[in-house]
Every structure is written in structure tokens, then in C-alpha cells.
Design a protein around this nucleic acid. Structure first.
Length: 945
DNA sequence: TTTTTGCATGTATCA
DNA sequence: GATACATGCAAAAAG
């Protein structure tokens, strides 16, 4: 039987390239590798390359391994078909099924198993080419080849790279020389032999049996699930780890490592390979090895020695410093330290005899979890814990998930700036199966014995998002603090919490708590921050800001996933209410799609909650509540209160500078203001959740609503007299306003043509607007031309003739609908919107510009559409008379926005505007009326719906 | 036309 | 300044 496998045509050593003349020709006899391939040895250069060959070309008799290396049992040939009957040993020889089983049993019992060659407990394979490899002839040690060029020992595979030296330490341990570890003198790796001279030092070392996972046979082997014989590459890594002698076993690090994980292990036989737990399960040798895996974090500056949040706050959460093995950096970034929970331990270690060695973890980025199916691996982690790869194509890698399902990935790298970027390809099925998304965490561990790679996962949680959002500078609510402070018990069992902090790019919990724990009095009062009242002091804010700057781009990107953003809606809004432009900040006007936005270079400041009201006269007031007496005091509009405020701080009103002073607002007025404020807040929420409302509304009115939304009026629909912010703050990640939610041009998910989401509606509306503008411009041009023509033709005509009137004057002769349309498009053409457009102040604005200036479109009708629920609410609560009270009330009384029933509102609006309207041109009034009527009609449609 | 693939680039972080 | 990494982008491949 001939297996159609690739046959080497020539020596793959670029320095050699000797052609292969056939079976056994110029090539030395090969030896089978675990993968089922043959390693060939070039007679010319003396290097060996792993190649696939026809099994009947290199027959068993020639390769000399047909007998079991342990018991001498006659085996089948090395063809794939008979592969199940033996186990290929990487270093040569084969192992029969019986020995495989025995080996497994011995391994499980903790006995040292002479895994490869029974005759030799110590295979010394270092040295020059003239050294005899102990216990084995050169040809019988397939992984070992002498580099004849430099007379050094070189071990190569098909990629023409020197690779591992496998040392059998006490019959069990092997070691993998890793280039970077050799370079790292601090590792104190104690090798058994003088420094190894390596051929082709410029190339990375490769572990043994690299071919094992590169061939299809490997997959089949994995399916056998024999933990003993299934010596995956990771096994070699683990074995290599065990071969390191460490000089730190009994020093302070050991103690610190012990303190890192305190809780007893879950199962007597399930060992998380860290800390003192190892003492009961591992041999002293192993213990010494493992201890170094969990070196204590370097002490932080100012970090309290007694407060270890990992230990005190999250006893169920194990923050394991990963094994300091591998070829990569000996110190992985803390954000990759695996945080493994008891639950995950249990989940992973289905085999009670297994030892879990957490390796690293990674928070999935958007691209990781995306459809592209590539998971970017931290370089250091990939180099440390995954099999070494020398070619960009990498190698297949089988990783088992916590459910026991095996996933086959391609582990590879891309050259990147003289470095490498490691990726796992083909992760989409796994990601989807586990329902992972950006922000979730994937953990990689290794099961000992067996060295099998396993991956766990941890879903992101609300808290993750919240913390991340805080770190992102986008959220500062009491939620986090109350969670952290008040629900320690919950947090302690909350695996995602710590992870989330980690996910926020090293916002380590110790840091989080260091802040207050290190304060002089250990005051944690700010953790109990009242939603609107007290809040983190300036230092706290600085702390958060400082932390937020540490957020990596990856965190920024995935943290505000759509769902999370929606979940954060309320707290985001709450935070919004506390945001004010910095007093000294001057906005930069930016144009986004022809609309004007204010951008602030300086971050907004957190202010004490205040309520803005507007009087019938149009004057605005700011009301703030005393932290002592809870009375509401009036403040000047521009004042920003950024800290605790009491009546005694009221330097603007001497009459109210004491808590004993009576409240300016009557209880009824106060109630009305607060009710409307709350209602406005709720409806503002509906702005953020516009999609829901849109879905419920009649399509014919969506356009109007979308228009209102994009004009910034939906959120301010109830702000006729109550407003919370004076400006739309700078857009931030997570902002769900109509502008921010739109994907970049051409990006984002495809929407159905009938989709009624606000994005699609906005796009349609904008298209509509565009067409309207185009039409309008054309119309204007035609009119202008006609006008000029007529003017020229009638230039002798007396003034006052209709034909000589300006286009604007001509407008007044149109029918009302045309006028309204013109008015609207004129405003759209203006392109400047005020996010805080206020009907009551519109007139002033217009007054400044004069009647010749285009006026903001009347949004009364649109607001009416959107404010219908409030109307109902007002009606139900008997607040319809409020408008009347406003009109007749004292000037000092807060004027509650007229939110009466429809007719009342219209009347109120007309009343309120009327005084100014009279000063305007009659035709302009007609325009507004027409527009209002038109919008009223659409509002009626909504009501009918 | 869509998906895959390989590389380039921008940004955040680290030393 | 160097490095790591998330993601954009264009070419290639596949459907």
C-alpha cells in the first residue's frame, strides 16, 4: 500500500539542496516520526528533514524500528493504515499498544516512566558531533542530527531549523532548549551540560515532534485521546518546563507565591499548578519547578502590603502567574495572567487526576470575535506556551475546550515589523459555538499530565462593561462603587469582576482599591457615592482619568459593544447629566455632515446635578439642591457646582444662603418641576432607545421623528422649560446619539431595505433631504433666472409690481405648503443646528439675525409627536393647568414647560411665541403656522396610530 | 459578489 | 523610541 504523501525531491537545507535520487539513494535511511512522516537525512549535508514518504519506499526493515522499543514486540509497518497499533516515538522507535497502556498507567500513578528508551535514563545529547549520544546510535535518534557544517549539534526539521534537544531527566523530564531562555541569564536554567552550541543560531529552536501536529495523523492521534501517549507538542513544553532547575524554590518568592492562592483546592486530585497547593500534589522537584511559575507580582509603588484584593476580595478567583516557561519573555504582561476560577477549574479538569496549569488568557477583541476567524495571540504567550513555529504557515493546533470538544486551529504568525504576530486561525466555529463575543475572555491552560492544551472562556459581564466603561472615561455611576463596596460577597464570587478590571488594560483591582486604601484615613466613602450627590472627589476623578488613559486600544474598541452600550444606557445618561463643559473650555465648532457640533478639547467636568428651568419670559434658571437641607436654590445659569454644595455656599443669593431660609419654590412648583424633570429623563431614555420607539411608530411619522432626532430635538422635546445640559457634550465611545451610532461609510452590518432602525431612517431622511435640497436649488435657480428675465423684460415697470419683487417676497405669495417646504429646506440648507434648540429662545436667535436670515425650522409639531406620552402623563396628573400658572405666576416662579393637551400646548406655544412673532414679518409667521400645521397633522397621525 | 488571506498601519503601551 | 496588537485594506480565491 502506498500512501500518497509528499516526497522530498531535494534536501531542504538551502545551503545544500542535494537532490533526492530515490528511496534510500543519497539519503540516509529515515526514521519515522510520530506524525507518521519520515525524517530524512541528507548524505551530503548531514541534516535531516522531516518528509512524508511512501511507507513502502522506506520500508520498515530499512528503518529498523518495526519492533517495539520497550518490549520488542513485532509491529506493523509504519503506514497510516496500521497506525493505531503502535505509537511512534519522536526520538525514534515505536511503542506497542501494550506498552502505551502500561506507560499510561504508570504515568497516572505518578511513577516515573521511561518513556522513550528503557535502557537509558539520561540521554545526554549535547556536545560536538564526535560525541556519542548515549544509549542510542545517531541513526536511532531521529531528532538529532549533527550539523556537519559547524560540527555542532543541530536538530532540524523540515523547516530547516534546529530544534529541540530532548533530555530524559530521571526518565521523565525532558527539556526543550529555547533560544530566548538561553539568552535570559536570569532564568537560572540549569542545564545538564555545558552550553549548547547550536547550529544556525540565527534560527529559532523548535521543539521536538513539531511534525506531530502538522500532519493529518496527528489529528487522528488526538482522537485517540490517550493522555499518555498523546504527547502533543504542549507536552513537550511541559516536559521542558520540568527540566528546569530553579534556584528560587525556597526563597521569599515561594512564600509570596503561596499567598497568591490561598484557597484549598477543590478536589484532592485536581491541582492548580501554583502556590502551595502544589505541595500536596507534586513532587519536590515539580514543586520547585512550579514555584517559579507564580512569582509574585512586583510590588507596586505605594501598594499596601496587607491588602491583596485578589486574596481578600476574590477568594474564588485565582490569579495565577503563568508558568515562566517557553521561549518568550519570562514575564508576561499581567493582563495575560490567567484568572482562573474554581468553576473553571472544575470545568476544565474533568479528569480528576489532572493538574491544571493555567497559561494565559486573552480578552477577545472585536476582531478576535469577528467573522474573520482570527484570534490574535499575545506574542509572549504564543512563544511561551504554544509550539514553536518557524514558518508563517505555522502548524495545526488542537485545543480542547472545557466541554471536552477538540478544536483544530491553525497556529501561525505573520511577519510584522521585524517581529511576529501570532494568530490562531479558524476560531470562528469555536467562538460561535461558545457564543463568545468581544469582551469575553478566553483562557488557555494545560492539563498535566499529557500537556494537552485546553481553553476555557469567561463571558463578559455587566460589571466588566461598567468598569471598562469607567476606565474608558465614559461611565461614572454609583453602580460600580456600590458593587465593589457594598456587595463584596457578591464580588468575591464574581469571576468576571476581576477580569473586567484586567480587561480594562491593567486596571488591576489592587490599583482600584489602592487608591482608597492608601488614603490617609482609608475612607471609602466615595465608594458609596450617591447617584447624584456626593461623588468621587477630584483626586478620584484624576485617578479614574489616569486609569482611563491606560486603556488599550483593544479595550476601547470592544468594550462598547452594541449590547453593552444599551445596557449602559441608563448609567450613561446619568453620567451625562453630571457632565458639563469645563468652565474654561471653549468649544471648537466642527461640521459633521453640514451640521455644527461643539467639540471640547478639555474633558467635561462632573457637576452636581442641577435642573434648568425657563420662565415665561424666556429667562432660564438653574436649580440646585442643598446637600444639607435638600432645599432647592436658584443659581445663575452658568454656574457649575462641582462639589458638595450647601446653602451656605450660595453666594449668589444672600437671601438663600442659609438652610433656614425658605425655599423659593412652593411644594407644588417643586413637585411639578421634579416630575417633569423625571419625565424628561425617561423620555430622554427613549431617545437613546429610539429604535424601540421607532419600531412602534407609524412609518409615515418616522421621518419626522428621525428628523427631530438628528436635529437633536428628540432628546430635548420636553425641554421647553426643563433642560439638564446646555450643550451636547463631546461624543465619546458608546454615545448612542443619532450621529454616533452610524457606522463609517460603507461599513457596518447590512440593513434590510425595509429596516426601520433609526440609522436607516436617518439615512433615508438624509437622502430625502438631499433630494429636497437639490430640488430646491434647482427651483431657486429657475426662479432666479425667471426673475432676472422678467426683471430685464420689465425693467421699466414701476416698483411694487409683483414681478419685480424679491424671491423672498415672492414666497409670501405661495400657498402655505410650499412656503413651509421652503422654510424647511432653507433651514436645512443652513446646515447649522443647535442641539439645544429651544423654541422659547428661538425668537431671540431670530431677532439677532433679523428677518432676512433663515430661521430654524419649527419643530413644534415634531416635538408634539415625540412628546405625546408626556402630554398624556401631564394630563393624567392634572398638570395641564401648569401653563396657566406659569403665565400668571410670579417671575421668580420656575416656569414649568407647557406640556398640556394638544390644543393647550399649541395655544401655549403660540402664546409664548406670539409676543415675538408680532415683531416679525407677517409672512414669516405664516410660514411657521404652516409648518406647525403640517407637523400637527403628522402628530395626529402618530396619535391615531 | 463574497470570503479569505496576507500585509500594512495606527495607536497604545512599555522600557 | 520600540514594541505589541487591533484592525483596515487590498489582492486573491471561492462561490
Amino acid at each position: 500500500m502506498a500512501m500518497p504523501m509528499a516526497v522530498a525531491k531535494r534536501c531542504m537545507n538551502p545551503a545544500c539542496g542535494a537532490p533526492a535520487t530515490g528511496a534510500g539513494g543519497d539519503w540516509r535511511k529515515g526514521w519515522p516520526l510520530r506524525s507518521g512522516a519520515f525524517a530524512l537525512l541528507c548524505d551530503k549535508c548531514g541534516l535531516a528533514y522531516e518528509q512524508f514518504v511512501f511507507c513502502d519506499i522506506f520500508h520498515l526493515k530499512e528503518s529498523g524500528w518495526r519492533d517495539c522499543s520497550f518490549c520488542g514486540k513485532r509491529l506493523h509497518c509504519g503506514c497510516v493504515a496500521s497506525k493505531n497499533s503502535y505509537d511512534l516515538l519522536d526520538s525514534g522507535g515505536v511503542q506497542c499498544v501494550t506498552c502505551m497502556k502500561n506507560s499510561a498507567a504508570q504515568s497516572a500513578s505518578g511513577q516515573v516512566v521511561p518513556k522513550l528508551f528503557p535502557c537509558q535514563n539520561n540521554l545526554r545529547i549535547f556536545g560536538k558531533s564526535d560525541e556519542v549520544l548515549s544509549g542510542r546510535k545517531f541513526e536511532q535518534s531521529p531528532s538529532l542530527v549533527l550539523d556537519s557544517r559547524n560540527d555542532d549539534l543541530a536538530i532540524v526539521n523540515k523547516s530547516n531549523h534546529p530544534f529541540l534537544v530532548k533530555s530524559i531527566e530521571a526518565g521523565q523530564s525532558s527539556s526543550i532548549l529555547r533560544q530566548k531562555e538561553i539568552e535570559n541569564g536570569s532564568r537560572q536554567i540549569k542545564w545538564e551540560q555545558p552550553p549548547l552550541s547550536i547550529g544556525d543560531m540565527g534560527k529559532p529552536f523548535l521543539t521536538r515532534s513539531q511534525s506531530a501536529l502538522e500532519s493529518p495523523q496527528c489529528t487522528r492521534r488526538d482522537d485517540n485521546k490517550d493522555p499518555t501517549t498523546d504527547s502533543t507538542t504542549s507536552e513537550s513544553i511541559s516536559e521542558a518546563c520540568l527540566s528546569m532547575s530553579l534556584g528560587i524554590a525556597n526563597n521569599g518568592n515561594r512564600m509570596e507565591a503561596t499567598s497568591t492562592v490561598e484557597r484549598p483546592i477543590l478536589s484532592p486530585t485536581t491541582v492548580i499548578a501554583e502556590g502551595r497547593e502544589l505541595t500536596t500534589a507534586l513532587s519536590p522537584f515539580q514543586h520547585a519547578q512550579r514555584a517559579r511559575h507564580f512569582l509574585t507580582r512586583p510590588p507596586r509603588v505605594g501598594e499596601g502590603a496587607v491588602f491583596d484584593p485578589t486574596r481578600d476580595m476574590f477568594p474564588h478567583l485565582r490569579v495565577a502567574r503563568p508558568p515562566a516557561e517557553g521561549r518568550g519573555r519570562n514575564q508576561l504582561l499581567p493582563r495575560y495572567w490567567p484568572r482562573i476560577t474554581d468553576q473553571e477549574l472544575q470545568q476544565i479538569s474533568g479528569d480528576s487526576n489532572s493538574t491544571i496549569v493555567p497559561l494565559f488568557e486573552k480578552v477577545l477583541s472585536a476582531s478576535d470575535a469577528g467573522r474573520i476567524g482570527r484570534l490574535v495571540l499575545p506574542k509572549a504567550c504564543a512563544e511561551a506556551y504554544f509550539p514553536p513555529i518557524s514558518q508563517p504557515e505555522g502548524r495545526p493546533l488542537t485545543i480542547q475546550d472545557a466541554r471536552g470538544k477538540e478544536w483544530h486551529f491553525q497556529f501561525r504568525f505573520w511577519p510584522n515589523n521585524n517581529s511576529r504576530m501570532y494568530v490562531l486561525e479558524g476560531v470562528t466555529p469555536c467562538i460561535q459555538s461558545l457564543q463568545l463575543q468581544a469582551g469575553d475572555t478566553v483562557t488557555f491552560s494545560r492539563i498535566e499530565p499529557g500537556g494537552k492544551l485546553v481553553m476555557g472562556f469567561r463571558k463578559a459581564t455587566n460589571t466588566d462593561s461598567q468598569i471598562s466603561a469607567i476606565a474608558n472615561g465614559s461611565l461614572l455611576s454609583e453602580t460600580l462603587f456600590s458593587t465593589a463596596n457594598d456587595n463584596l460577597g457578591v464580588v468575591s464570587g464574581y469571576p468576571g469582576f476581576l477580569q473586567s478590571i484586567k480587561g480594562a488594560a491593567d486596571l488591576h483591582p489592587s490599583s482600584l482599591y489602592d487608591h482608597h486604601m492608601n488614603s490617609a484615613d482609608g475612607d471609602v466613602s466615595w465608594l458609596k457615592a450617591d447617584k447624584f450627590g456626593s461623588r468621587p472627589d477630584e483626586g478620584s476623578l484624576q485617578f479614574l482619568q489616569k486609569r482611563s488613559r491606560n486603556i488599550g486600544s483593544k479595550s476601547r474598541r470592544f468594550l462598547m459593544d452594541a449590547e453593552d452600550a444599551m445596557e449602559l444606557k441608563l448609567t450613561w445618561e446619568e453620567a451625562q447629566e453630571l457632565l458639563r463643559p469645563a468652565p474654561t473650555a471653549k468649544p471648537t465648532i466642527v461640521m459633521i455632515e453640514d451640521y455644527e457640533f461643539e467639540e471640547y478639547d478639555e474633558p467635561p467636568v462632573f457637576a452636581k446635578r442641577s435642573i434648568f428651568t425657563i420662565r415665561a419670559t424666556g429667562e432660564q434658571d438653574q436649580w440646585i439642591q442643598c446637600d444639607d437641607c435638600s432645599k432647592w436654590r436658584r443659581l445663575p445659569l452658568t454656574v457649575i457646582i462641582a462639589s458638595k454644595w450647601t446653602c451656605t455656599d450660595n453666594s449668589w443669593d444672600p437671601k438663600s444662603c442659609s438652610c433656614s431660609a425658605p425655599e423659593e419654590l412652593t411644594p407644588k412648583e417643586l413637585q411639578s418641576v421634579l416630575q417633569q424633570y423625571e419625565e424628561m429623563r425617561r423620555r430622554k431614555g427613549s431617545y437613546y432607545g429610539l429604535k424601540l420607539n421607532v419600531a412602534e411608530m407609524d412609518a409615515s411619522n418616522l421621518d419626522a421623528l428621525a428628523t427631530a432626532a438628528v436635529f437633536g430635538d428628540v432628546g430635548n422635546q420636553g425641554t421647553a422649560s426643563v433642560a439638564t445640559t446646555t450643550k451636547h457634550p463631546r461624543h465619546r465611545p458608546g454615545c448612542t446619539c443619532i450621529v454616533c451610532i452610524q457606522p463609517p461609510s460603507g461599513k457596518g452590518p447590512k440593513h434590510n431595505p425595509s429596516c426601520t432602525c433609526n440609522v436607516c431612517m436617518t439615512v433615508r431622511r438624509r437622502f430625502k433631504t438631499l433630494m429636497m435640497r437639490k430640488k430646491q436649488r434647482q427651483s431657486e435657480r429657475e426662479e432666479a433666472e425667471a426673475s432676472k428675465k422678467m426683471a430685464w423684460m420689465n425693467r421699466d415697470e414701476p416698483e411694487g409690481s409683483n414681478l419685480s419683487r424679491s424671491p423672498q417676497t415672492l414666497d409670501t405669495t405661495r400657498d402655505s405648503s410650499d412656503v413651509a417646504m421652503f422654510d424647511k429646506t432653507a433651514d436645512m440648507n443652513k446646515g447649522h443646528i443647535d442641539l439645544n434648540f429651544h423654541p422659547a429662545v428661538r425668537d431671540d436667535h431670530q431677532g439677532q439675525h433679523g428677518t432676512q436670515q433663515p430661521r430654524p425650522v419649527s419643530m413644534v409639531g415634531l416635538m408634539e409627536v415625540a412628546s405625546r406620552p408626556l402630554d398624556n402623563y401631564m394630563k393624567q396628573n392634572g398638570l395641564t393647568s401648569l401653563a396657566g400658572e406659569q403665565g400668571g405666576g410670579s417671575s421668580s416662579t420656575a416656569t414649568v414647560p407647557p406640556a398640556p393637551v394638544e390644543s393647550e400646548e399649541r395655544a401655549s406655544n403660540e402664546l409664548r411665541v406670539a409676543s415675538v412673532e408680532r415683531e416679525r414679518e407677517p409672512d414669516a409667521m405664516a410660514v411657521d403656522e404652516a409648518g406647525d400645521n403640517q407637523q400637527d397633522k403628522s402628530g395626529d397621525d402618530v396619535a391615531a396610530t
